Amino acid sequence: MHMNTPSRSTIRLTRRGRIALIAAGAVVAGTVVAVPLLSLGEDEEAKPTSLVIPAGWRASQVYEAIDKALTLPPGSTKKSLAKLDLKLPNDADGNPEGYLFPATYPLERAGKKATPDSLLSAMVDAANQKFSGAPIAAGAQRNAMNLYQAVTIASIVQAEAATKADMGKVARVIYNRLERGMPLQLDSTVNYALNRRTLRTSDADTRIESPYNSYQRMGLPPTPIANPGEDAMRAAINPAAGDWLYFVTVKPGDTRFTADYSEHQRNVDDFDKAQRKASPKPTK
């Protein structure tokens, strides 16, 4: 279901003005934290001893980081999934997206070097330990969600909210839209379908054929779209109180939530102005 509006380009629920944060994330995404254990000679390269998975990474980023940390050929970790027996919910259908818990994982334990199997299993075990506790389970039930759906909402919250303070509000927008039978219309789900990250989503993007296209499909996407941390998970089961249906991050630190569509349009106009100011057209 779509809202009847004069312009499709103005109905987007969110366009995140987070250029600085995305730029910073791109740096983090390419790094494996190295902690040298011994003093090395000048010609000897320090090898990482642990792998840091930041909150909000997609499974594909985790696989690439594991390959890099273990100096494996690209694609090795992803290929290993077929023979793993990870402790995932039935709804996940073997896809660990959402359950690769963000934390620091050692690359060697008790003299044994880590493998893709051991690292992925450790991440899923950590997620199960964090998510399956009584408070989380009770919170999901209180919001008429099963745990997998709660993790899916948390993954969207992680992708959409720039700050911890905004996470509860983003979660509330999701619930409010679901309860009213409105499509979520979230750029983050479309970006997941297209395997990219961008602040702008075109009209053509919103028409792609994908179960992750929340402009065209009702309800939640079929799986999480990232691996959420504890803050996002807490927000997903304990959303802030409010009647908001729309939000847009006009610029970093300025996310505006509203239940009024006209006000949201004005906020989107401010976002567009901020984007044009940040990226002026080159002069001829």
Rank of each mutant, 00 (worst) to 15 (best):
residue 276 R to G: 14
residue 162 A to V: 01
residue 248 V to M: 06
residue 176 N to E: 07
residue 34 A to D: 13
residue 203 D to V: 14
residue 146 N to P: 04
residue 243 D to S: 15
residue 152 T to S: 13
residue 61 Q to Y: 01
residue 243 D to L: 00
residue 174 I to Y: 09
residue 233 M to G: 04
residue 120 L to C: 00
residue 135 P to V: 05
residue 84 L to N: 01
residue 120 L to D: 02
residue 169 K to D: 08
residue 128 N to Q: 08
residue 55 A to C: 12
residue 194 L to W: 05
residue 230 E to A: 13
residue 227 N to Q: 03
residue 9 S to L: 05
residue 245 L to A: 08
residue 98 G to H: 08
residue 196 R to K: 13
residue 265 Q to N: 09
residue 187 D to N: 15
residue 19 I to C: 06
residue 75 G to M: 08
residue 3 M to H: 10
residue 225 I to P: 05
residue 183 P to I: 05
residue 162 A to N: 14
residue 5 T to K: 11
residue 6 P to W: 05
residue 167 M to V: 10
residue 184 L to T: 04
residue 14 T to V: 14
residue 93 D to E: 14
residue 80 S to H: 04
residue 20 A to E: 14
residue 53 I to V: 14
residue 32 V to H: 07
residue 217 R to H: 09
residue 215 Y to S: 04
residue 271 F to E: 04
residue 109 R to G: 05
residue 82 A to L: 07
residue 95 N to G: 12
residue 202 S to R: 11
residue 216 Q to D: 10
residue 223 T to I: 03
residue 60 S to W: 06
residue 175 Y to R: 13
residue 6 P to F: 12
residue 46 A to R: 00
residue 180 R to S: 15
residue 3 M to V: 15
residue 226 A to R: 01
residue 5 T to R: 14
residue 53 I to L: 12
residue 164 K to G: 10
residue 263 E to Y: 01
residue 249 T to N: 07
residue 67 D to Y: 05
residue 27 V to H: 13
residue 38 L to P: 00
residue 7 S to D: 11
residue 88 L to Q: 02
residue 210 S to G: 03
residue 258 T to V: 02
residue 177 R to Y: 10
residue 195 N to Q: 14
residue 34 A to C: 15
residue 6 P to L: 12
residue 172 R to V: 01
residue 253 G to A: 08
residue 133 G to S: 15
residue 17 G to S: 04
residue 252 P to A: 13
residue 191 N to D: 12
residue 174 I to V: 15
residue 240 A to F: 02
residue 8 R to T: 11
residue 201 T to K: 04
residue 189 T to F: 03
residue 108 E to M: 10
residue 147 L to W: 12
residue 261 Y to W: 10
residue 136 I to F: 11
residue 156 I to N: 04
residue 202 S to D: 08
residue 128 N to P: 02
residue 46 A to F: 00
residue 162 A to Q: 12
residue 31 T to P: 00
residue 220 L to P: 02
residue 268 V to D: 07
residue 95 N to P: 03
residue 17 G to K: 07
residue 177 R to M: 08
residue 260 D to A: 05
residue 180 R to I: 03
residue 9 S to C: 06
residue 21 L to F: 06
residue 91 D to Q: 15
residue 200 R to N: 11
residue 104 T to R: 13
residue 118 S to T: 10
residue 215 Y to K: 02
residue 249 T to Q: 06
residue 177 R to E: 04
residue 13 L to N: 15
residue 94 G to C: 07
residue 269 D to R: 14
residue 217 R to Y: 04
residue 104 T to K: 12
residue 169 K to N: 09
residue 23 A to T: 15
residue 2 H to Y: 11
residue 143 N to F: 06
residue 265 Q to D: 10
residue 253 G to K: 13
residue 229 G to S: 05
residue 277 K to N: 11
residue 220 L to S: 09
residue 142 R to T: 13
residue 268 V to A: 12
residue 209 E to R: 07
residue 240 A to Q: 10
residue 55 A to L: 07
residue 138 A to L: 02
residue 215 Y to L: 03
residue 38 L to M: 04
residue 80 S to L: 03
residue 78 K to N: 09
residue 211 P to Y: 01
residue 244 W to Q: 10
residue 123 M to Q: 13
residue 25 G to L: 14
residue 133 G to H: 10
residue 39 S to T: 06
residue 138 A to K: 14
residue 71 T to P: 01
residue 283 T to E: 15
residue 204 A to E: 15
residue 190 V to K: 04
residue 160 E to F: 08
residue 39 S to D: 03
